[in-house]
């Protein structure tokens, strides 16, 4: 077990290292932050050189990368070119809203997907099943920004039920969480359906039936528990994707989150914020996956050989 954990930790370090390389060098291809900062002025060469030196951009690129890595190890993500704030504090301020949005979206997805998936599985082959599957497929067929704008139009502008955008009160969560949740529920309800089907076909359900237990009781007691495992896995694996999936929703709903901050930073060539933000996203994803894998190997010793590794 200890060996397994060590091995996974080693993998996690490699992944974060590779991502640090990718983000560090790719963001430096996008252009010179000094030129962007001076975009409205008439800078002299002297001023450009000063600022370049001040931002540490005059050093050889490998030295810059070395400094970035060295600071990263001590969790120092540097200082934003654009705001003068430490990147850590900027990330800390935005990670909360993003995580809450992701969690709310996940909650909406679960609320929709479980009933739909279970009914689909139990009533397999009926019109209900077809309807449930169509629903889940339609859910993942919307462009998310379009769905968001449509929801704003209908539920904020036309009906006035919820605020159109912003962050703060529980009402502000409704529309963005539904946008995110509808899309997720499409994937999740299929998972629930298939894992329920697996259970329903198994011997012990038939046994339970034969013992005279009412079918819904059986379904809930056995089926639901079984459906939870792939759901947890899905949430684990998708968590990173989920955080990133909030990017566009944050843009549409003016959500003060991490994804929006990173996009703005890319456009402003604010290297430290882009690097820090992406690294933090990667760390979270890797950590969540690690936890999911670990809990898996504890729950189910048969796959301890290394989870996804073979």
């Amino acid at each position: 077990m200890a060996k397994f954990i060590l091995r996974r930790l080693f993998h996690a370090v490699i992944v974060v290292f590779v991502i640090s390389l990718l983000i560090f060098f790719s963001i430096r291809l996008t252009g010179d932050p000094v030129a962007v900062m001076f975009a409205a002025g008439e800078p002299s060469q002297q001023a450009i050189d000063n600022l370049t030196a001040e931002l540490g951009l005059d050093q050889p690129i490998w030295v810059q990368y070395g400094i970035f890595l060295r600071d990263l190890i001590t969790f120092d993500l540097g200082t934003s070119f654009r705001t003068g704030q430490s990147v850590s504090s900027m990330v800390a301020a935005t990670i909360g809203p993003t995580t809450l949005l992701a969690a709310a979206g996940m909650a909406v997805a679960i609320l929709i997907a479980f009933p739909v998936g279970i009914v689909s599985a139990v009533k397999r082959g009926t019109v209900l099943d077809f309807g449930g599957r169509m629903f889940s497929l339609i859910g993942i067929s919307f462009p998310n920004f379009w769905l968001g704008i449509m929801l704003i139009l209908i539920f904020a502008v036309m009906l006035g039920w919820f605020p159109a955008s912003g962050y703060g009160t529980p009402q502000h969560f409704v529309l963005p969480a539904i946008t995110l949740g509808l899309i997720l529920s499409g994937i999740l309800s299929r998972l629930v359906r298939s894992s329920m089907l697996e259970v329903l076909n198994q011997q012990y359900i038939a046994t339970a039936h034969s013992k005279g237990l009412r079918s819904w009781v059986v379904i809930f007691r056995h089926g639901l528990r079984n459906a939870l495992i792939p759901t947890v896995t899905f949430m684990g694996v998708q968590f990173g994707g989920l955080l990133a999936g909030t990017v566009i929703i944050e843009q549409v709903f003016s959500w003060p989150g991490l994804g929006r901050m990173i996009i703005d930073a890319i456009n402003a060539r604010d290297y430290p914020v882009v690097q820090g933000g992406v690294i933090v996203l990667a760390l979270i994803t890797v950590a969540v996956n690690l936890l999911v894998d670990l809990s898996y190997s504890i729950l189910n010793p048969r796959i301890k050989a290394g989870g996804s590794d073979s």
């Binding site: 992944v15 590779v18 994804g259 992406v278 996804s308 590794d309 073979s310």
Partner: peptide, 26 residues
Amino acid sequence: DDFIMRAADVQLAFPFILFAIIIMSV
């Protein structure tokens, strides 16, 4: 095999949209 699996992990942890924005800016 190890290489492919790590590449998969990297892909999972680096949001595509952000990567695409950077590359398309270039």
